[in-house]
Write a protein that binds this DNA or RNA. Sequence first.
RNA 1: GCCCUCGUAGCUCAGAUGGAUAGAGCGACCGCCUCCUAAGCGGUAGGCCACAGGUUCGACUCCUGUCGAGGGCACCA
Length: 577
Amino acid sequence: MAYIQSLGGFVKQALESALQCAVDTLLQDMLDAKAVRVQLTRPKIKEHGDYAANVAMPLASALGMNPRQVAERLLQIVQWPEGVDSADIAGPGFINIKLKVGGETDILKTIMQQGAAYGCVDNDNGECVNLEFVSANPTGPMHVGHGRGAVVGDALANVLSACGYQVHKEYYINDAGNQIGVLANSVWLRMQELQGMSITFPESAYPGDYIVEIAKGILAEQDFSAFECMDDNVRLKVIGELSVAANMAMIKADLQAMGIEFDEYFSEKTLHESGKVSELIEKLEADDLIYTGTLPPPKGKEVSDYKPVEQRLFRTTQFGDDVDRPLQKQDGTATYFAADIAYHANKYERGFKHMIDIWGADHGGYIKRVQSAMKALTGLDEQPEVLLVQMVNLTRNGVPFKMSKRAGTFVALSEVVEEVGSDAVRFNFMTRRIESQFDFDLEAAKQQDAENPVYYVQYAHARVCAVLRKAELEGVEIIDVNDVDTSLLISDEEQKLIKMLLSYPELLQTAAERREPYRIATYTMQLAAAFHSFYHKHRVIGVEHDLMQSRLLLLKATAQVIKNGLALLGVSAPDEM
RNA sequence: GCCCUCGUAGCUCAGAUGGAUAGAGCGACCGCCUCCUAAGCGGUAGGCCACAGGUUCGACUCCUGUCGAGGGCACCA
């Protein structure tokens, strides 16, 4: 038992290595046989034990024996760690491991001792990760679609940090390029309009009301005439900078409303101004990775204005890309791609060998070229590691609702956060895999109350707190954690809860390794369900003293783990609801 | 035409490296508060896991193909 406890809940690894020893022993004489790795699973069915191993099956084919015989041999030689009650052979050859009842209950004490740190890896694993997410263009406020990436990225950062990674959260500001010109022009037109001048607002300009607000903001700070006498280019540059600043302030406020902060906001413009982009191109030229060529017209897409044109092309195909990519536009200025690889190269120069980018699914076609470029520049494979977040399909009362910044029909994230609350929005986005494009109904979201699973989880936490308050009110003496007899927790519901609490560290590891923070959300829902089920069936206050003490401990540990999980998701755990 | 992601209950979604009887919430139906929070619990109904092949002792999971949904495909970002 001491062995298991010392692992802080990592029972699985202890069992796996024990069984692995047995497997290796069995395979020792058979040099030809392929090594078989032991991997335990948690069976869905209670009767199948606490952990199950299927090694006997693949082993059987390697050894030319039948699986049940192999399992028997393994059980003869295996040295289980303490805490194992029994190991049986079942079905075609599964080894079902049952832990001693009460053998796992020490985890409750561990949880209380570790508190907020339970589940986390306490030491730095030495991995430094640059995590880039959101990076919404500074041409308007964040819309609901951006929210998903923001929430997922922030939660992933938390999960990775909890698992010992050093995470640097970064936001890339696309404050260069044509879009900023469009933004500046839009704002300038509104400024003129506000001065009573009659203007024609072209279709190409951004129509949103926020443009008017930015224009007002600028006019409140500075005199209109100062802009009027500027040279056109100068004026657009100045207004562009002011507008980007205004939009970034809006975006930061939206992020702030959901508790999201970045370690660094990196400006694309600085890459151009500091000469990083042209340096990059020169370096590639020197390495003979650029040539003059003509790209074929895109297939299956109507490009009416396609003209074959000679460009300076980067040989990304040599590094895995589908076609070579232009780094300069026809007018000689750098493409977005050029700046973007300069940006990623800059991350590398800053010491990040590991980069994770969270992009919207509409950038999926972009992965290969950036990775190819990075391979050419740094030799690193599959960097940055890109996580694609699928689009959010917005509906209003079930009717599809198209968002367009250009058409001014987007729904601001802040609007939904204000109405639904940060917790509900965050949890809602976290209950799905990023690969699934899901429907987000605006009306349903706004009306969400009992329908939202976040309340289900939070309610479990609040309920525990209510019991604890009641206990205090009734003057129940709380004895020292170490004096609690946790072996009294033998009911199905109690055992279920304990096992769930025990699996939390494993779950957290999986979530980090697979970059799937949503697992935390589904876990907290399951944990809450196990708790609600227990709560309904058993009473805590008023039962026999020792049992009450053990149940109070169970509740505290449950609340702690719910709180820890929700914290990773950036969701609060209220004491009362 | 090519590439990426997806297709699981009426709806929204879970089903870790292939495992034993495919789950939850919402919706429907039936029960449960003199008792720690009913934002809860228990139960019933609802499934050819898109379809067809293949690999395997074993497939919702892996491979191929078909169908369907979304996204992407030079000089935008």
